[in-house]
Amino acid sequence: GPREVTMKKGDILTLLNSTNKDWWKVEVNDRQGFVPAAYVKKLDSGTGKELVLALYDYQ
């Protein structure tokens, strides 16, 4: 199956793709996968990378 990404509340993840309104593709610890968009919030990183903050645990 697809590689699952797990996250804990407060984690910072790299946002790869947010074109789908329900599932965003993120990368964390060299793993890529989809997380519910409602579970993360975009951060203003000030760099080229888009980052998101995990609002809830997800696994």
Rank of each mutant, 00 (worst) to 15 (best):
L55E: 03
K9I: 07
L55F: 03
G33Y: 15
P2M: 15
M7H: 01
Q32M: 10
W24K: 00
N17Q: 09
V5Y: 09
F34Q: 03
L51W: 08
L55G: 01
Q59P: 15
R3N: 14
W23M: 04
A54W: 02
N29E: 11
E50R: 12
Q32W: 15
Y58D: 01
V28K: 14
V52L: 08
E50I: 14
R31N: 09
S45E: 10
V28N: 13
K21S: 11
T47L: 11
S18F: 06
V40S: 00
F34Y: 15
L43V: 10
L16T: 04
K42L: 12
N29P: 03
K9V: 08
S18C: 10
E27S: 09
D57S: 07
G46F: 10
T19V: 09
D44R: 09
Y39E: 02
G1A: 12
Y56D: 07
N17A: 08
K21N: 10
W24D: 00
T19W: 08
P36F: 04
A37M: 04
K42S: 06
L16H: 04
G10I: 01
G33F: 15
K25G: 05
D11L: 03
V5I: 15
A54C: 10
Y58N: 01
K8S: 07
Y56L: 09
Q32K: 11
V28M: 14
K49H: 10
F34R: 03
F34W: 15
K49P: 14
K42D: 04
L53H: 04
K25P: 01
A38C: 12
K49C: 08
P2I: 12
A38H: 12
W24G: 00
E4W: 15
G10P: 00
V28T: 10
S18I: 05
W23H: 03
K41D: 07
L43R: 01
V52G: 09
V28Y: 12
R31G: 11
V40G: 01
K21A: 10
M7D: 02
D22L: 13
Q59W: 12
G10M: 02
D57R: 03
L16K: 04
G33V: 15
L43G: 02
E4Y: 15
Y56G: 04
W23N: 01
S45L: 13
A54G: 02
E27I: 10
G10Q: 02
L43D: 02
K25N: 06
Y39Q: 04
A38I: 10
M7S: 01
S45P: 08
L51Y: 13
D22E: 12
L55D: 01
D22G: 07
R31I: 15
L13N: 01
T14P: 09
L51V: 09
F34A: 02
V35E: 01
D30Q: 08
W23F: 06
D30V: 03
L16R: 03
